[in-house]
Amino acid sequence: MDAPSSTPSRQGSPEVTVVLADDHLVVRAGMRLLLAQDPAFRIVAESATVPDTLDAVREHRPRVLVLDLTMAGQSSLPMIPALLTASPGTRILVLTMQEDPAFTREALRTGAAGYLLKEAAAEELLAAAHQVADGATYVQPVLGARLAVETPGPAHQEPVPVLGARSAAVTPGPADQEPLTVREAEVLSLLALGHTNQEIAQRLYVSVRTVETHRSRIRDKLGKDTRAELIAAARERGLVA
């Protein structure tokens, strides 16, 4: 079987060929503009329907397929195995609005290498694309955490590695406390695990100042700041064991 196509990059290493599959022209244009800024990537095709995506993958055998879960009213989830059969070397990065962990689990079960929400920051998309191209699995922490704590289904899926982050949902705590946003919950869990602000910033692809802002909001909402208090608060919310 032929390997996914690639050509030498300006740095001398193979370019990562990419197919963009999304039925929204503006979304594809944004992804194209973002990936074009990184010399490691080369866009070889775009598609707006599930059948066209399958044709593009067969023709170009890209290293990475950035795939929306719903295109032109049709779910692309059932087509993931067929896409991988058409090009076994292709790594599929799902980029979607679907926050339900059930979609994440099913996408990974059927062969996707990554799962990212469309609200993710630009640098997170780049990081995810690099990770899956390099053979790693990429799942946003909020979704990975939900997969890890939920009761496994019939297939008893193992928790997946967690990299990157972003979501606007909230994580509830005691009734008398203001709920944390998911980003704040991610920062809280990492603080509770002993990570420094610098380490958290690197892990979440944000600035140290942003981490400091989240930490200040956590302190204001919870009235807690010491590591012991943060660990207790994170355990209370099921963020750490």
Rank of each mutant, 00 (worst) to 15 (best):
P4A: 03
S5W: 13
S6P: 01
T7C: 01
R10D: 11
S13E: 14
P14Y: 03
V16A: 02
V16T: 12
A29D: 14
A29G: 15
M31L: 15
L34Q: 02
L35P: 05
Q37Y: 06
D38N: 13
A45Q: 03
V50S: 03
D52I: 00
L54A: 14
V57G: 10
R58C: 04
R61Q: 14
P62V: 05
L65M: 04
L69H: 02
T70C: 05
M71T: 11
G73L: 14
G73W: 14
P78C: 08
P78S: 09
M79C: 10
M79W: 04
P81W: 11
L83N: 00
S87W: 10
T96Y: 01
M97W: 10
M97Y: 12
Q98W: 13
P101F: 08
T104H: 08
R105S: 14
L108Y: 11
T110M: 01
T110C: 01
G111A: 05
G111R: 06
A112L: 13
G114V: 11
A120R: 00
A120S: 15
A129R: 01
H130G: 03
Q131H: 10
V132G: 08
V132D: 04
A133P: 02
A133W: 01
D134E: 13
G135L: 10
G135F: 10
G135C: 12
A136D: 12
Y138F: 13
P141R: 12
V142K: 03
L143Q: 11
T151K: 08
A155N: 11
H156R: 15
H156A: 15
P159A: 14
P159R: 13
V160I: 07
G164D: 08
T171S: 09
Q177V: 14
Q177E: 14
E178P: 06
E178H: 09
L180F: 04
R183Y: 07
R183D: 13
E186R: 02
S189I: 12
L191Q: 08
A192H: 06
N197W: 00
Q198W: 04
Q198D: 12
I200D: 00
I200K: 01
A201V: 11
R203Y: 02
R203M: 11
Y205N: 04
V206F: 05
S207H: 08
V208H: 06
R209K: 06
T213R: 10
T213S: 09
R215L: 00
R215F: 00
R219E: 15
D220G: 03
K221M: 03
L222H: 05
L222W: 06
L222D: 08
L222K: 06
G223L: 05
G223K: 05
K224V: 15
R227C: 00
V240L: 00
